[in-house]
């Protein structure tokens, strides 16, 4: 599911795209005193923040051993595992929210992951880089090669991303699966954008339920 570049991409996203603004957005979406599962939780920064500020019952899954260690040392209950396997163990509707931040495009079976998220959780929060952003489109058009941008900084042969989706793609899937999109937030840097998100959003955050 994840490959060598995973660590780098996670760090890039946390630092450049999410930072505190991502905490604020997810913090705003998540009701206090709920049960939260973060898939690909890294070193558990977000979960520790949610536990301290929203008093949530926080759990995580992380495939990188050193990151899982850091998260546990931070006091967060993290399961050192592949996320697709980790979802299988859990009972139905065990969580109020299941978060998947910047990882959907790296999973082998994205639809299955999302379906599992909505099986174990009442709601899913999914954040992903938008492949429909105008810079990605221009890069592809101008170079005639697999696009490389700030959002997608890899050469095609060493990219952890194995599925590419746009804001519209996600909306279409949600419609086909008959999920309800309760919130959609589009980010360009730290700012939110409302107009033409499929062209302008670098990152899309969806709050979805069955």
């Amino acid at each position: 599911m994840r490959h060598g570049g995973k660590l780098a991409v996670a760090q890039t996203f946390v630092r450049e795209l999410l930072g505190r603004s991502d905490y604020a957005i997810i913090g705003e979406l998540i009701e206090p005193n709920t049960r939260v599962l973060d898939l690909g939780c890294g070193e558990g920064e977000l979960l520790a923040w949610l536990a301290a500020n929203k008093h949530v019952d926080a759990r995580g899954v992380e495939i990188s051993g050193p990151k899982a260690q850091q998260a546990i040392a931070r006091g967060v209950s993290v399961f050192h595992s592949d996320l697709e396997e980790a979802l299988r163990d859990l009972p139905d509707q065990a969580f109020d929210y299941v978060i998947l931040s910047q990882t959907l495009q790296e999973t082998r079976a994205p639809l299955k992951v999302l379906q599992d998220m909505l099986r174990v959780g009442r709601r899913a929060i999914v954040a992903f880089p938008n492949f429909g952003h105008w810079r990605v489109r221009l890069a592809h058009l101008w170079t005639g090669r697999a696009p490389k941008t700030k959002l997608f900084p890899y050469d095609w042969y060493n990219s952890p991303n194995i599925h590419f989706l746009t804001v519209h793609d996600f909306e279409a899937m949600a419609l086909a699966e008959r999920w309800t999109v309760e919130r959609r937030i589009f980010l360009e840097g730290a700012r939110t954008v409302k107009l033409r998100p499929n062209l302008r959003a670098e990152v899309a955050v969806f709050l979805v339920r069955k």
């Binding site: 019952d57 759990r59 051993g65 899982a68 260690q69 546990i72 967060v76 209950s77 993290v78 399961f79 050192h80 595992s81 980790a86 163990d89 859990l90 009972p91 065990a94």
Partner: peptide, 18 residues
């Protein structure tokens, strides 16, 4: 052990250390 506990939605942290 971890899987059985997670299946019951128990609070479990697990790490395999190198």
């Amino acid at each position: 052990v971890v899987r059985a506990l997670r299946g019951r939605n128990c609070d479990v942290a697990y790490c395999e250390l190198p």
